[in-house]
């Protein structure tokens, strides 16, 4: 039973590998050959390369922007205005209740405005950063929140303040190092989400990697499958690395907080 489920989950991935490594049919023997030409061909599609670069840039900007907005806000909420915690949580989790397609419908007029008034910058796919930050909020919030719960943030802040640290120092030199597991998870989840984002970029007509893969799939499915597999493997490695290092540390802290000494 378990084996069957795992096989079902793994089969498409193996098929991707098989599919993307098909070579030309040998003219003499008529036998199929193996080759990496689909992977090499990635670079012969400038659109694809541009899409990959654009997505990576958006991912980087999104992570920076998300951390800049979320970390100070969450820390501040915990140590200074706990009664706002529920409000912040609600707003951060709200994107889960508003499907991406709905956000596109509502945000299209705003993007039209940005496109008209920000000149060349407005036409850049990098403007997707604004909306991608919203999309990653629920996941980032949860990652950082579980870290914050693992430590006694308010006491740490009181201690730092009583030793004479300013608020920025307290947040960035005392609290952030103690929640770095959660911050790292949030960043990695953010990168993976942005690299996989299709709905919004497609409907706003920005050529991110997913949009290009989708369009290319009709012309050269072999290359599309090759890029897809690479992207999945990349996301897998990222997630595996954080599950190996960051959450383990968080779990320990959480368990320590729950159990009596």
């Amino acid at each position: 039973m378990l084996v069957a489920v795992l096989a079902y989950l793994i089969l498409p991935l193996i098929a991707m590998l098989e599919f993307s490594t098909r070579g030309d049919v040998d003219p003499v023997t008529k036998a199929a050959t193996r080759s990496l030409q689909s992977y090499a061909a990635i670079f012969s599609y400038p659109n694809l390369v541009d899409g990959i670069i654009a997505s990576l840039e958006i991912a980087a900007l999104t992570v920076v922007g998300m951390l800049a907005i979320l970390v100070p806000t969450m820390v501040w909420t915990v140590v200074r205005v706990p009664r706002m915690r529920r409000v912040v949580e609600f707003l951060c989790l709200l994107p889960l209740a508003i499907p991406a397609i709905v956000i596109v419908v509502g945000i299209a007029p705003i993007y039209r405005f940005i496109g008209q008034h920000l000149g060349p910058l407005g036409a850049s796919p990098l403007t997707l950063t604004f909306i991608d930050i919203i999309l990653v909020l629920p996941y980032s919030y949860r990652a950082i929140d579980s870290s914050l719960r693992g430590i006694d943030t308010a006491t740490l802040a009181d201690a730092a303040r009583s030793l004479g640290a300013s608020w920025p120092r307290t947040i960035f030199e005392v609290i952030v190092p103690n929640i770095r597991g959660g911050v790292l998870s949030a960043a990695v989840l953010g990168i993976a989400l942005v690299l996989g984002e299709f709905t919004i970029s497609s409907l706003l007509s920005f050529n991110t990697v997913q949009v290009v893969i989708y369009l290319l799939g009709k012309r050269d499915p072999f290359v599309s499958v090759a890029v897809s597999l690479l992207a999945l493997v990349f996301a897998f490695v990222l997630l595996f690395v954080i599950s190996r290092f960051a959450p383990g540390a968080d779990n320990r802290a959480q368990r320590a907080a729950e159990e009596p000494a």
Binding site: P12, L13, A15, M16, E18, F19, S20, Y139, L189, A192, L193, L195, G196, E197, F198, T199, Q210, I213, Y214, G217, P221, S224, V225, S228, L229, A231, L232, A235
Partner: peptide, 13 residues
Amino acid sequence: QFGGVMLAFAFFA
């Protein structure tokens, strides 16, 4: 969480 288009291609393959 990150599949979307790529999972569709997995099934095409």
